[in-house]
Design a protein around this nucleic acid. Sequence first.
RNA 1: GUGGCCGUAGCUCAAGUGGCAGAGCACCAGACUGUGGCUCUGGGGGUUGCGGGUUCGAGUCCCGUCGGCCACCCCA
Length: 431
Amino acid sequence: MAKHQAPRGMRDVLPPESDWWQWLVSRCREAAHRFGYREIRTPLVEHTEVFLKGVGEGTDIVEHEMYTFADRAGRSLSLRPEGTAGVVRAYVEHGMHTWPQPVKLYYVAEMFRYDRPQAGRYRQHTQFGAEVLGAAGPSADVDVLSLAVRTLQGLGLREVRVHLNSVGDARCRPGYLQAFRDYFQAYYDRLDEDSRRRLTTNPLRILDSKVEQTRQIARGAPRTLDYLCPDCRAHFDRVVRKLEVLGIAVEVDPLIVRGLDYYTRTAAEVHYPKLGAQSTLFGGGRYDGLAEVLGGPPTPGVGFGMGLERVLLVLEQEGLLPEVDASPRVFVCCEGEAWEDEALRVVDALRGAGLRAEGDLLDRSLRAQLRAASKAGARWAVLVGVPGTPAGEVILRDLRSGEQRVVRTEAVVGLVAREEEGGCARTGAGS
RNA sequence: GUGGCCGUAGCUCAAGUGGCAGAGCACCAGACUGUGGCUCUGGGGGUUGCGGGUUCGAGUCCCGUCGGCCACCCCA
């Protein structure tokens, strides 16, 4: 076994998986641009304070899951466990409230959480996320959520169902929480240990419990939707209706809550059940109080974060990963040292003409070079310096048919280029 | 952080109740076609994740540790 391994919960991405990543990320970017979102790139680390305030001190993420360390000057920094806090910090820091509103931003970024790893849950993972800042109305919720949904659909995922709930706002949430606590307090002896703990730390998450007895109790629990103030109620109804206008399947789900403190009103998730316990593809919602918490002007915001490792797992399960052809089109073989420079010039000229071309780097025999060319999937081989070939000429061999002809060295690039163009036109390459 | 299952070559996996670490694929070289694919021959590769213990003898049994997986927890 290797002496050194990647840190726990972190992984190497090798070809061809790296090809799939490039493809996936570009699809996300294209979708975001289509929706009018522009990229924001924030630091991988923030002052720990940003997450303490922005994510919430009582949350599991900041209590147990952050990679926190002191830099050489003694400042406490943390690897970002999620994307929104940093984006909102940047919004405030750069006075983006003076930009034309709303500000629509997206990111594709690595997140770090010190969790116990399993399939679909990594200590380093990648999120595609988007935020709308400065728009309080339901249209903004629908804009970001539809970006997430249409991105997934664009990847070929059919049944995307948005689970939707509202957790209220500063006006109605306290009253709800009171009723919620009162309800579970009455069943205290029958609650499991985790749920008792949550009653004080993160009450709403009791709704997510997997313990059967607790689930039964939870079925009778007060629901946020019944406690919404009129404004929150109207907001929620309009989000649902607009998603339906778009033909996006919505399931009102009172059990969707967010573990993060800054969420208000809309809470949304999309799951892919086949992934098992780590089935959330994206989660998102509204966070109207966050900018103020981070010292900025009151600014409404709504966004989502999508786990790309999980999306890739789903695409793999569904057979939706693209075929990526990384093979060279032309392989230049060289017989003998005397011709190495000539072969090098031919490879370079082919590349200059925009063709994917390779040459031998291992001083192999002609046979071995041809073998390598064939194995690499090259369509053409150019043979330089084969005995019997007239000076100034090379052999152009079609590796598919086995046909070959002797051509002038200066002409070979043009010949291959023409063949490739014709081939592309015939097969209608690209999709 | 809790509980459970697992760890043998680069990959997929063999090696009855403890008894000489193997195969296929992959990789490299050679043979046969002037020069690839097909076929054949050979080769390189392992401290059985790591450390300790039991035993005449451990891939196999025990303990610890690291890593992966499943569930909890949490969440993307």
